[in-house]
């Protein structure tokens, strides 16, 4: 019954001696998400083209609300104003991408790209690299490396493990939540109660948990970068 629940379609491409494997569904779905976001951006931009009038038009008000939300809830938590300004686009894109990835599973026959470990891991690792780069840039080389042997030199392995645990837990949190929801949904709609309940569960896992996890993912990215830069 659930043989394919823990499996996914893998596209195997062989170019010469190289053998590349791709997760077909995740890639197609992430393309869909990117296309949706670009269309959204283009649509919002059309409203911004107009001159500023007495009263902002509907799209302008929407952009205002969106930017306000992103700034107020996410980047306002950065330690410094400069960091918030520099990373606004990155954090906002991260949030919107993950949010739409989570929400797209509401559409029948669509899968969340975030229920693929590769996707979440690449995003988490990107955040990790970002945080290390910013820490290095802001603190300077000496203070950056000194941060690893604090408070005592023999804590070095512990600090390194602690740093590496961050992206791992970051990636697994998103993956676990979305994949768990998808599995629960598949089991309930495939075997237990195929009517009404799956719709409610889909709304709950797809919309509610999806939104919260997207927010948490972006928020944790902010927190990780903050901690790396500050300490």
């Amino acid at each position: 019954m659930f043989e394919h629940l823990g499996e996914k379609l893998i596209l195997h491409v062989t170019i010469g001696s190289f053998s590349l494997r791709f997760d077909l569904v995740a890639i197609i779905m992430s393309w869909v998400v990117i296309a949706l976001l670009v269309v959204l951006a283009l649509w919002l931009r059309r409203g911004l083209r107009q001159e500023i009038e007495e009263k902002p038009n509907r799209i302008q008000a929407m952009v205002d609300a969106l930017i306000d939300l992103l700034k107020g809830q996410l980047t306002s938590n950065f330690a410094s104003e400069r960091l918030a300004r520099e990373l606004f686009s990155f954090i906002s894109t991260l949030f919107l991408f993950v949010l739409l990835c989570n929400w797209i599973s509401v559409i029948p026959y669509f899968q969340s790209p975030t229920q693929d470990l590769n996707v979440t891991f690449s995003l988490a690792l990107l955040v990790f690299v970002m945080s290390q780069v910013f820490a290095f840039r802001m603190k300077g080389g000496r203070r950056y490396f000194k941060g690893f042997i604090e408070p005592y030199p023999f804590m070095l392995p512990l600090n390194i493990v602690g740093e590496i645990a961050k992206p791992v837990s970051h990636a697994f949190r998103l993956f676990g939540n979305i994949f768990g929801g998808a599995i629960l949904l598949a089991v309930v709609s495939g075997e237990l109660i195929p009517v009404v309940v799956p719709a409610a569960l889909n709304a709950f896992f797809g919309l509610f948990i999806g939104a919260i996890q997207a927010f948490v993912f972006a928020m944790l990215a902010v927190a990780y970068i903050n901690v790396a830069v500050e300490s």
Binding site: K8, F22, L24
Partner: peptide, 16 residues
């Protein structure tokens, strides 16, 4: 170029 089934958790690949 062919399609196959793979494990969810095990396969870190070029999708990354």
């Amino acid at each position: 170029m062919n399609l196959e089934w793979g494990k969810v958790v095990k396969s870190l690949n070029w999708t990354f």
